[in-house]
Nucleic acid binder design. Structure first.
Lengths: 136, 136
DNA sequence: TCGGCGATTTACGTTAACGTCAACTCACGT
DNA sequence: ACGTGAGTTGACGTTAACGTAAATCGCCGA
């Protein structure tokens, strides 16, 4: 139906709206080696590859990774199919690190949930103990 | 056996070692309203309450919360048993926010794991495709 | 009495991750 | 020809979260 899944492109403002970040941020990420948009004249043209990278970058950020860490993975990933053994092993190392990190975060989330439950419990008790209570 | 579970106290360097942060960090957290150690002369004396707060603070940090966010929760929590209704409701709001946040993070972790799996898969393929391969 | 050691205060320095201009350029519609 | 709107390039500003260094204090043991 769609012609032939035309390889879409995006303007910077388009991407910026899609992910709710400013154009400044997107240019900054490029400067930091996280994106490599095409250029039409002086204007940047973003492809799906860039969109995906941006998505991964933002996700990484939400998980507390620095732009440097994210870049390192992306760079190694890009050199993947023909990377030398050293690079590949390095990448595996990096991946293992990230996994460990994720695991710790899951544990932290679990514990934090318990805290929240506890606090919320006490909070509701305190509310009910109020003279003029009316919860909702 | 232990006398009567004496309410332990800690020096700043002791705490600093326990959590692998610098004394500077601990003082900074106090300045930001996250800790309120006792004073013996000009020296800080930390109680278990402070230790717990520090632990929570660091956990919050690992989950990407700012010191300000963490403080807000701690403050409201401290004023808990006799807080007024407005404060209590505000606290419930905050807690809900944090929960939403945690949920998003769990989703992010899930997705990130998938990415890692994918990358690792390709990486191992690339390794095996090497002429002089020897994985371990 | 002196020398350390641990702690404190004050203050300036630093890094990451952008924000915020200002001054263009370029294509487009009228 | 002209304005308008999107995009670009410097360049400097900002904020959070500490780092770092210098000067000071108090106590304890030889």
């Amino acid at each position: 139906m769609t012609p032939d899944s035309a390889p879409r492109t995006y303007s910077i403002s388009e991407l910026s709206r899609m992910f709710e970040v400013t154009p400044r941020t997107i240019r900054f990420y490029e400067q930091e080696g996280l994106l490599e948009p095409e250029r039409r004249g002086q204007t940047r043209i973003y492809h799906d590859k860039d969109r995906v990278r941006l998505k991964l970058t933002l996700r990484g950020k939400r998980l507390g990774f620095s732009l440097g860490e994210i870049r390192e993975v992306i760079e190694l990933y890009d050199a993947l199919p023909d990377g030398n053994a050293r690079q590949l092993r390095r990448l595996l190392e990096l991946l293992a690190e990230k996994r460990t990190n994720l695991q710790r975060q899951e544990e932290d989330i679990r514990l934090m949930r318990k805290e929240l439950d506890d606090v919320e419990g006490r909070c509701r008790e305190a509310l009910l103990a109020l003279p003029e209570n009316a919860e909702g």
